[in-house]
Design a protein around this nucleic acid. Structure first.
Lengths: 129, 129
DNA sequence: ATTCAAACTTACCTTTTGGTATGTACTTAC
DNA sequence: GTAAGTACATACCAAAAGGTAAGTTTGAAT
């Protein structure tokens, strides 16, 4: 039986409304400009660094590396490096990351699916005197 | 029958992986430092401005106002102002916002529920040589 | 006449984020 | 011997986000 195999009532729980709660930090990593996009991509399949760059339009090398490190630090992303030359590194979701990615996908899918309604609301809003 | 009462196949859909897609902007609003927290609070009940400030520890007036305006602009939050003195303003979710808040809540709940595992992963990660 | 209250707005400044460009490592191919 | 390929790190700078503090509005209470 592993550490997290059951969620008993003694398990400490985060409280995002509270300043200084560590869950705020995780929220920050994940909702950083590129965090959601990286998780979304990796939910689909394992990617190499350069492939991710092509997939996620607009991300710079620096930011992609930084984002991946943040997510790796939180145990959501797994980095596997093959010691060949030129370098070959593969990124994928950990078990924890896969679990989370379901929520992220629902979240992102909703935005994509409802973008038309949102734009409509934006237009209506800007037509206010 | 209203405009958005059915999602037919002709409905344009966002693509978050693409730069310049308007859904990227919405993602940015919602994943701004305080966006998720505001939606989470309003999912619970209607709040006045000052109540929200107390609820969401750490937000400044400026940022709260700005976040609320962003979400209002996207049609997720509704602002109702009563012309009394001193001012009385109530914030709540629109129908669209309520729909979305379900996803946001799942997303946030996951982090809160799994914060122990994440912290464990963080420690393990930092113990690497 | 002064104070107070709520919901902001604004000016000013600091911190964080993000981009660009360049450097590095190492081996294979030409 | 030089170029190419991959995954970064780093320095430098510009832009954006965010915080603090003060000001605004208006009527009612003291």
């Amino acid at each position: 039986m592993h550490t997290n195999s059951l969620q008993n009532h003694k398990m400490p729980r985060g409280n995002l409304f509270s300043d200084k709660c560590p869950s705020r930090g995780v929220l920050k990593h994940v909702t950083s400009r590129w965090g959601v996009l990286v998780i979304l991509a990796l939910e689909e399949k394992t990617y190499r660094f350069s492939e991710l760059r092509k997939k996620i339009t607009g991300v710079s090398e620096k930011m992609l590396a930084q984002t991946l490190q943040g997510l790796e630090h939180d145990g959501l992303v797994k980095r596997v490096s093959y010691p060949v030359v030129p370098p070959h590194v593969e990124y994928s979701l950990t078990g924890l990351g896969q679990d989370f990615s379901v929520k992220v996908k629902d979240f992102a899918d909703w935005i994509e699916a409802n973008i038309a309604d949102i734009i409509e609301a934006q237009i209506a809003h800007s037509e206010q005197s």
